[in-house]
Structure formats: C-alpha cells, structure tokens
Simulated scan of single mutants.
Amino acid sequence: MANNPIAIEKWDIWFQSWLETLSQIDQADQIPLELDQAYELSLRLTDDAEIQTLNAQYRQIDRPTDVLAFAALEVDSPQSEEMRSLPLYLGDIVISVDTAQRQAEQQGHEVTYELAWLAAHGLLHLLGWDHPDDDSLVRMLSQQETLLQVVGFATRTG
C-alpha cells in the first residue's frame, strides 16, 4: 500500500505526546483525557484510490481527501471503572500519502511535516474537535500547530 516515511515508534511517541498535551486542556466540547488512562487508535496510511472509496462511502464525496477520522466515542460517552482498566479506543485515522505528498510540495515543506499535521488533525477529530465555522477552524488549526511543536516541528510561517 502506501509508503510510510515515519517509523512506527515515532508515531507512537508522537501520539503519546499529543494525548498527554491534550489531557491538560479543559474543553467542554471535547472528550476529556486523563493521564492515567491508556488509549488506543488506528492509523492507516493509504493512497488516493482507497481514501476516495472511503470518502465516497462515508461522506458521499467521490474524490480523494487528505485525512479521514472515524471517532469511536461520543463526547458525552460515560466510562465505567471497568472500562478504565482497558485501553480506551478512540477510533481510526486514515491518511492519503499521495495527497500528503502533493500538499507538502505545494506548501514547500517535507512530507513528514504534512503527515504529522494530518495525523494531529485526525486525532483532534477523534476527540470531538470540529470546524464548522471560521472561529472553530482557527482554534483547531492553532491546536494542531501546538501539537506539532510538542513533537519538535518548528512553527510554520507563510
């Protein structure tokens, strides 16, 4: 399938760092995270053909996209003590490496940065973040920028 220019171990470190960072944010309209809870999600790096199929099937948009997020939880999902002893499954993130490569070239940065950007965006969607209007989009993009800084990416300019 798609080539993964980022080692699995690096993805693990990034997602763990992002979840720790997000656990410190108190947002009423997002899934609350706790440091003592284990979390699980899936990340699939694919190509434009597969993501177009998924986009058509789940969003009725028959074209490729850069990232899709399929949340497993609702923001107000109660968690029992029994559930807290297991990793909490957040959902699935699917990224088209083809689209990420094109976007990275268009914006003049490395594909690694673009993949991390898209993964952070997908993670925020799994946690209940959304961007139905300009204000919420600005907040979400700002949070993505923070997450990338946490794992060592410099702030993008321009």
Rank of each mutant, 00 (worst) to 15 (best):
N4S: 11
N4C: 09
P5Y: 08
I8Q: 15
E9P: 06
W11N: 05
I13W: 15
W18R: 02
W18P: 01
E20R: 12
L22A: 02
L22V: 04
I25M: 10
A28L: 10
D29R: 06
L33C: 02
E34V: 05
L35N: 09
D36Q: 08
Q37G: 01
A38C: 07
L41W: 00
L43Y: 01
T46Q: 01
D48T: 11
L54M: 13
N55F: 06
A56P: 04
R59V: 05
R59W: 13
R59H: 14
Q60S: 15
R63H: 13
T65V: 14
A69G: 11
A71V: 08
V75F: 03
D76N: 15
P78C: 07
Q79R: 15
Q79A: 08
S80Q: 11
E82A: 14
E82M: 12
R84I: 09
L86I: 09
L90A: 03
I95W: 00
S96K: 02
T99E: 08
A100R: 02
R102I: 07
Q106C: 06
Q107S: 10
H109S: 02
H109D: 03
Y113Q: 05
E114I: 02
A116P: 01
L118G: 00
H121E: 09
L123T: 00
L123H: 00
L124E: 02
H125N: 04
H131N: 08
P132V: 09
D134C: 10
S136T: 12
L137T: 08
V138P: 03
R139F: 12
M140L: 15
Q143H: 12
Q143A: 13
T146C: 14
Q149V: 12
F153T: 01
R156A: 12
R156L: 13
